[in-house]
Design a protein around this nucleic acid. Structure first.
Lengths: 226, 226
DNA sequence: TGCCATTTTAAGTTTTCCTTAGGGCCCTGT
DNA sequence: ACAGGGCCCTAAGGAAAACTTAAAATGGCA
């Protein structure tokens, strides 16, 4: 975990940095807004602790610039006691949390844990098979970056194949997972949709294993991507 | 946006609920820990406001159970002045923010905005999707700089779609977040309002994904902003 | 109370796409 | 080589989902 500490008070800085390091963080220190902005722009921090009353450029401005540039790092703001209206503008500038001086180090550490935990929770599972990608959350798929336009059944079919890629999947298995109990066993729907899928993602990505079923796999030349 | 307010003080509850509703939230109220736990378990809230000093089951326990069950809804904790050590245990139980009574309603609202925004994965306070902008603070939206004239429900619909842009959102999900428990499931209100929104922000900005729901996205030629 | 803005219901229309069916191709085993 | 079965392709019927529109219901405010 790497943290940027933007704080101008030398004593507080030293003490905080020590506590943070004790807690296992790697800490960079910025004594003014200019330095803070530069560091936050160039280094990949897991979290930023930002004093609002920084020299050169004030905290809110620094934060606003980061957010305008699309920076998503969680930011915890520090300020002097009593200026509660600052909190509102701080939050609306894109802060994720707020702490009023003086505070207990314990509380700062607790808030940091909460922030980092939440920020890390946004990793989304993305299914990949060679150039084919499928994002179950967005219900979207693409081939070589090109978005696919899939119908509902096409999508569900591809989804299931992606989940079980490199394995031969029988028509029966597909039917059982894509439909509810009663479905005509003599239907050729699966075949029809295999054809449509192939047309959209590329013929060679779906191999037919005669008598057994189908196998989704990456192309030969794209084996070890990700 | 739908919120669970878990607070036992009747006066504070009533006043808070009113303020939250004025701010455009749909609010469910739980007067004790048991009710809070049940509601939070069954209804999909965008945020929970949780008093630590609840009857029957205390706030920290309620929160711990939710987190143990994998619930990720952002939670803001309320407590009495001075009990700062509670904050630490509250955070470590999985709280995302903390507010000490008494507080300014303004500050609560600002923290809520930040929590909801961040939980949906947005760092910036201003929601942007191509030429569409929405400012939750001012409750205003615009298309290509042109201010939009939206009714309450239209605005809330757009807000939710902006928070979760590029994701397919089902009619059920929309209903659950825009209304409280009892709403006719066989209504086509959502469809009607999708039509009205489309008329105002541009047809192609809302894609319908047959069988699944709707997706808000930037136009093709606006893709590479940010 | 009555008006206006907003929301909801309802009915009719359009669009999408799942399914079916038939002809043809290819593989395989005899 | 050829017969038979498995698989592929295409096109069209029909049903479900989504859209549109207008009118009825609701609710806030003068």
């Amino acid at each position: 975990m790497r943290i940027l500490l933007a704080e101008d008070d030398p004593d507080l800085s030293r003490q905080l940095k020590a506590s943070l390091q004790d807690a296992g963080y790697v800490v960079d220190h910025a004594p003014d807004g200019e330095e803070a902005h530069f560091l936050g722009d160039t280094e990949p921090y897991d979290c930023v602790i930002l004093d609002l009353g920084l020299p050169k450029i004030d905290g809110v401005s620094v934060l606003e610039r980061w957010r305008r540039d699309g920076k998503a790092t969680p930011v915890l703001i520090l300020t002097a006691r009593g200026a509660w209206s600052d909190k509102v503008s701080g939050f609306d500038a894109g802060a994720d949390d707020y702490l009023t001086k003086p505070f207990h180090t314990e509380e700062l550490l607790a808030r940091l844990r909460a922030l980092v935990r939440r920020a890390a929770g946004h990793a989304q599972p993305l299914l990949v098979c060679g150039g084919v990608r499928l994002d179950p959350r967005a219900a979207r798929a693409s081939v070589n970056g090109e978005p696919l336009r899939l119908t509902s059944l096409e999508y569900r079919l591809l989804h299931y194949m992606m989940l079980h890629q490199n394995r031969v999947i029988s028509r029966t298995e597909l039917v059982e997972h894509l439909y509810d109990q009663d479905f005509d066993r003599d239907s050729n729907t699966i075949e029809v949709f295999m054809g449509r899928l192939r047309k959209k993602i590329g013929n060679e990505r779906i191999e037919t294993v005669r008598g057994l079923g189908y196998r989704l796999k990456p192309l030969h030349n794209e084996v070890s991507e990700i």
